[in-house]
């Protein structure tokens, strides 16, 4: 299912306005050609992002896309928080031409969001101070979100003990692995004992 057309149109307009302010990025996109299909698995949304002469077109997935990216909602939020997180984000699955995708994503990562330029048609001379204000709010929200995440994790792990701290979890995992290995060794030894007992062989050391 394609996302609502109005949402796609608004997003496409915004991307194209950003690209119009960065001719180098636009030229890079055009040189890349092809396209990328994004699938948001939980929402069952699928959309294609295709470079065209004036920027990008967002629309239904078509043939000609060179890479596919499946994203769970948690991966979308992780990427919104840190657009440079790359493929290490949990809940993201990539298929197709990975090198192409890397270059495609780099074009958008390199885009400078010229907020003042975007607001200028509506706010005129007030665009620059308004953009600065928005950036402050953005920074505040980002710091707030990171702080909330860290505090929440600390509370759940240290205070309420609902979650296990990462270090304890790693220790536990290591111990489980050791136990698993020990069991395997023990089973192998038992098999050896059974084999030798069955053949009346020499005693086990």
């Amino acid at each position: 299912m394609t996302p609502p057309a109005l949402l796609l149109g608004a997003l496409e307009s915004l991307l194209n306005r950003l690209l119009a302010r960065d001719p180098h990025a636009l030229a890079q996109l055009q040189a890349l050609g092809g396209g990328v299909v994004l699938r948001l698995t939980e929402l069952d949304w699928e959309l294609g992002v295709y470079p065209v002469a004036h920027g990008v077109v967002l629309g239904p997935a078509e043939r000609g896309a060179r890479a596919q990216v499946e994203l769970q909602t948690k991966a979308v939020f992780a990427l919104l928080r840190d657009p440079r997180a790359g493929r290490a984000v949990p809940g993201m699955h990539v298929a197709g031409d990975a090198e192409y995708l890397q270059r495609f994503v780099e074009v958008f990562q390199g885009l400078e969001a010229d907020l003042a330029g975007l607001l200028e048609p509506w706010l005129g001379e007030q665009a620059a101070p308004a953009a600065a204000g928005l950036r402050r709010v953005q920074g505040f929200l980002r710091r707030g979100l990171s702080g909330l995440e860290a505090s929440g994790a600390e509370f759940l792990a240290e205070e309420s003990r609902d979650l296990v701290p990462a270090a304890e979890l790693e220790d536990w995992m290591r111990e489980v692995e050791e136990l698993d290995l020990d069991v395997e060794r023990f089973e192998a030894r038992l098999r050896r004992v059974e084999r030798r007992a069955g053949h009346g062989g020499e005693p086990v050391a």
């Binding site: 149109g9 608004a10 496409e12 307009s13 194209n16 306005r17 119009a20 002469a53 004036h54 920027g55």
Partner: peptide, 13 residues
């Protein structure tokens, strides 16, 4: 305004 946004007019168009 929405239609103009979709048109993505370039300076050399």
């Amino acid at each position: 305004r929405f239609a103009i946004g979709l048109a993505a007019v370039r300076p050399e168009d």
